[in-house]
Design a protein around this nucleic acid. Sequence first.
DNA 1: CGGGAACGTTCAACTAGTTTAACAGCGGAA
DNA 2: TTCCGCTGTTAAACTAGTTGAACGTTCCCG
Lengths: 354, 354
Amino acid sequence: MASSSQVPRLKDVAAKANVSLSAASRILRGERQRFGEETCVRVLEAARELGWRRNLLVSGMQTGRTRTVGVMIPPFDSFWVDVLAGIHMVLAQADYLPITVWVGDCQEMPHFEKDEDEGFKQISRLLDRRVDGLILWPSFAVAYYDHFRELLERKVPVAVIDHEYSEDQIADSIETDEAASARAVAEHLISLGHKQIACLSSREAAWQAWAVRRRECFEQAVEDLGGAPVKSWRLNAWGTDGLEIAHEILSQSPRPTAVFAVTDHEALYLYEAAAELGIEIPRELSVVGFADLDFAANLRPALTTMRQRPREIGRRAAQLILDRLDGEMYDSPPTTIRVGADLIVRKSTGRAAE
Amino acid sequence: MASSSQVPRLKDVAAKANVSLSAASRILRGERQRFGEETCVRVLEAARELGWRRNLLVSGMQTGRTRTVGVMIPPFDSFWVDVLAGIHMVLAQADYLPITVWVGDCQEMPHFEKDEDEGFKQISRLLDRRVDGLILWPSFAVAYYDHFRELLERKVPVAVIDHEYSEDQIADSIETDEAASARAVAEHLISLGHKQIACLSSREAAWQAWAVRRRECFEQAVEDLGGAPVKSWRLNAWGTDGLEIAHEILSQSPRPTAVFAVTDHEALYLYEAAAELGIEIPRELSVVGFADLDFAANLRPALTTMRQRPREIGRRAAQLILDRLDGEMYDSPPTTIRVGADLIVRKSTGRAAE
DNA sequence: CGGGAACGTTCAACTAGTTTAACAGCGGAA
DNA sequence: TTCCGCTGTTAAACTAGTTGAACGTTCCCG
């Protein structure tokens, strides 16, 4: 038969089972009680044999819901990969499909800003396919802020990770509990007797609000605990001078005995600079990172760091979208969820040298 | 108006521009020559003001093409992330949307096999949304081989990365040129004077055909170059005994002076075991990895490794799908593309000790 | 004044189903 | 004999457009 190489249609199933189109439709949708058992079996069998599958494009048109969520998060490092894993798990369980897109090449994190136009095309690709919701990473959330009006009008719920809009909160936000985490780091270092403490921040670009908060919370926490003021540094606008800044920090006099890096990426610069200057970690210098990225435990010495909970962050973001879609919190105002983090003490921190 | 909070329809645009539905449709699709310029402008303006966007669900139904490609590849390590980046680039440029799914949690690579049922659901989610093509990583390609018949019947082109079906090649395959790469490694080690050479393979599970080929090609290359037979080892079925095997390799007598690990992951075990046994790399032991994963350059000593070209692999896979879809090679038989790799000599290899 | 562009309209069929409403055949029970 | 329940059918409207064909107006040119 000519239809054997074609995608099977519902009418093929109906014909094969010898029932009407509408009967086949109802039975396959689960409306069984109106039909005899034998008929149901016949239809189900026919569908199975022909390899028929429901067409979600059609359902999407008819119901206005595609059971699809757009995700703009690059798998940039293990933190974001784990966030993605959390999102994928929750959505898969709810029979939703995440559609992940990003712009740039994942290698150079700092430069997503350049590609604003390409990023807008990506958003368009998602909206043209009528995604039900959207999850964004901070850089995109800032870059495409102007398009949020359209999203709100279309009632597409948006969740942003690690970025809370300060002026008008127009989207849900899921972030790490910076205040508590910074305090945990401060307590750890102060309890080890450190008095000269520095902080190495990232670029603190507009979309890195988390970095600003993390640094400020840390400075505050050290002060609250009675420590001497923290001296802070940050990378240049392109994020290219990490090694130089690390050298600068370690060349101060008096030299800091402990440095808190706002992510494990920055901690790497400190390791490199310390090696070049012959400074021994942790005997002469304690280093604390943030995130517990995949390489943190493999560094020598193994890095003490705040372990974020990226899975949980991803799961919560996805769940928030689902809740907004399933009517639960359809029209409630945007919320902010703060997820805790845990201090993992490894070998890069020790008692302050006398 | 009540329609202001709704998704704008084409008929809203037509009404606003004061033209018929079909005129609006034609103009927005680009069929301009039949209409006056002023009318075109009016329609385009109306569409812009209302925020109308094309509905690809409808186009999908009508043309049978969704401009969407399913990708079953977990962002497991930097190799696969880069493969994804290559795929995303090419597809985005062609105005296609990749939909990436996976099962498992990306942490434990070896155990995707367990979740066969969940994986089948993922495939279903993709096919129910009528993806035009599919790109698979080896594990999935093996696990869902049974469903390929359905894909072929539906004329959904499939490209598999790093897995060539030996019996009946039913899908396109893109892989690293194992023979040339293994030879490059063998030449490097032999030119350094190594005579006792070992190979540490992975689990060599059914879907790790690349590992088998890599090891066999390496053994062959060493033999061809006149070296002594390579002694090879592999991990157990769960991939959990890497450290023990590494210990075992380094406890042989005579102890191998060089070990080739089929991926950088396995090289990590050798580093750890060498450190524990007090064996100095590269003075007493040369180690070569494969892939040039993100951590390879940061190891101490920096790892000598074959750098694969994951972007290119991803780009080629995506291009292959597009070519099959765009009629070019609609019905040509499945092909295998082999992509080269480059030896990156770092600090983990040196002259064999006398 | 007739013909033909240029411009635009209406009608209908098509994508793949979904859903409501009305209706029909049959057997068993009152 | 009639009515009811069970099982199923058909017709029509609906999702959001797309596309071909036929059909009107103007307006200009010869």
